[in-house]
Design a protein around this nucleic acid. Structure first.
Length: 393
DNA sequence: TTGGAGTCAATAGG
DNA sequence: CCTATTGACTCCAA
């Protein structure tokens, strides 16, 4: 049993040594009851020397988020466990968030401390030999509770809203999120039930916004107002749209970055065939002549994500022992080291074929261009200059 | 204030 | 049921 060639050239970037632990505090549930070996607390984390997760996150070595999510997805589907259950009981997140995280994990080095938390939890969960078993138990319990509920309380109604979830998991809002409830605008709100309509932008509206984005990823308030009135949308909707779009575009870039890195070197290379362009409007107004590549600033490094093509990957659950922990960068952390001792399954996963799909390729360029615009925007801002024209006053 | 990071939660498809 | 998408909101830092 040879060890994995490993290597994974660690990079020793400047990595930020964040040792600033702020004493917990934060919002721990402060639940009254507590314990019970192995049960339900909202965010149960095995003993682990009593470290809080935040501490663990701070001490965690670099994790391969892509490999982790891949493995988690595999385990969940293989065992018919849903994202909702997993998210609420293991990560303390809602289904939608879990879906997003699993589908588009950001690279470790681009995550904030907070953003790393779910990945640390996932790794911890993967390391737990009884993870699946435990989740399945919860599933059963939930079902039981559900059955009981609908059987006995048919005429009863304690509902106001919030429907299900009754389960026992209780706790859904573990992390920080209390407060806030519904805060309706102080404008005529008579009945507590005025659901917000949930704006749904029409395809043409999205197209228009995307077009505007290509033109100016960071529109001025004035431009935003114009867009809003032209499209007949609330200003805040347009603002939110830009925030969200920028953020999501950025994330896709990270992903492509990962895939590119993963398939560097020997892989058959990406298929140039661009087939299918998917509707994206291909219009682009912005053109920038220079697409000169080259990393703008030396901010990022070239991560050594290379992996070696593993021949076979067998997966077996169970044992997860790893002889020695590779000395990743973090010096300290004996316990941690073992906690994160990657069980092989995960580390192996990485290598496995990355579906080098290059679904959309044309969009890549656009995204990169947008990224450049982003940088330009910042530089301009730093230089204290804004849009050239708009000096009016 | 502005922008970014994380999430929530409604909702569209399966 | 389950998962994916996405507008809106909270927190935080510059």
């Amino acid at each position: 049993a040879p060890e994995s060639p490993l290597s994974s050239a660690e990079e020793s970037v400047k990595s930020q040594q964040e040792e600033q632990m702020c004493q917990a505090s934060i919002q721990e549930p402060s639940e009254t009851s507590e314990s019970q070996p192995g049960t339900p607390l909202p965010l149960p984390l095995p003993g682990h020397a009593g470290l809080s997760i935040q501490e663990m996150v701070a001490m965690s070595p670099e994790l391969d988020t892509y490999a982790i999510t891949k493995k988690v997805k595999e385990v969940l589907t293989d065992n018919n466990l849903g994202q909702r259950l997993f998210g609420e009981s293991i990560l303390g997140l809602t289904q939608g968030s879990v879906s997003d995280l699993l589908a588009r994990p950001k690279p470790w080095h681009k995550l904030s401390l907070k953003g790393r938390e779910p990945f640390v939890r996932m790794q911890l969960w993967l390391n737990d030999p009884r993870n699946v078993e435990k989740l399945m138990d919860m599933k059963r319990m939930e079902k039981k509770a559900y059955m009981k509920r609908r059987h006995s309380s048919i005429g009863e109604s304690h509902s106001l809203e919030s429907g299900l979830s009754g389960s026992d998991l209780t706790q859904s809002a573990s992390p920080q999120n209390l407060s806030q409830q519904q805060q309706q605008q102080p404008q005529q709100q008579q009945q507590p039930h005025l659901k917000k309509p949930r704006v749904v932008l029409a395809p043409e509206e999205k197209e228009a916004l995307k077009r505007a984005y290509q033109q100016k990823p960071y529109p001025s308030p004035k431009t935003i107002e114009e867009l809003a009135s032209q499209l007949n949308l609330k200003t805040s909707t347009v603002i939110n749209w830009f925030h969200n779009y920028r953020s999501r575009i950025r994330r896709e870039l990270f992903i492509e970055e990962i895939q590119a890195a993963a398939s560097e070197g020997g892989s058959p290379s990406a298929r140039p065939g661009k087939s299918g362009g998917e509707g994206d409007n291909s219009c682009d107004g912005t053109e920038s002549d220079s697409t000169a590549e080259g990393r703008p600033s030396g901010s990022e490094e070239r991560k050594g994500l290379l992996e070696s093509p593993n021949r076979s990957q067998r997966d077996e659950e169970g044992e997860a022992e790893l002889p020695s922990a590779s000395g990743t960068s973090r010096p300290r952390g004996g316990i941690i080291d073992s906690l994160f001792g990657i069980p092989e399954s995960v580390s192996t996963a990485t290598a496995t074929a990355t579906p080098c799909r290059n679904p959309k390729d044309s969009s890549l360029r656009k995204k990169k261009a947008a990224n450049l615009n982003n940088i330009i925007h910042r530089l301009e801002k730093a230089a204290n200059r804004d849009e050239p024209h708009e000096w009016e006053f």
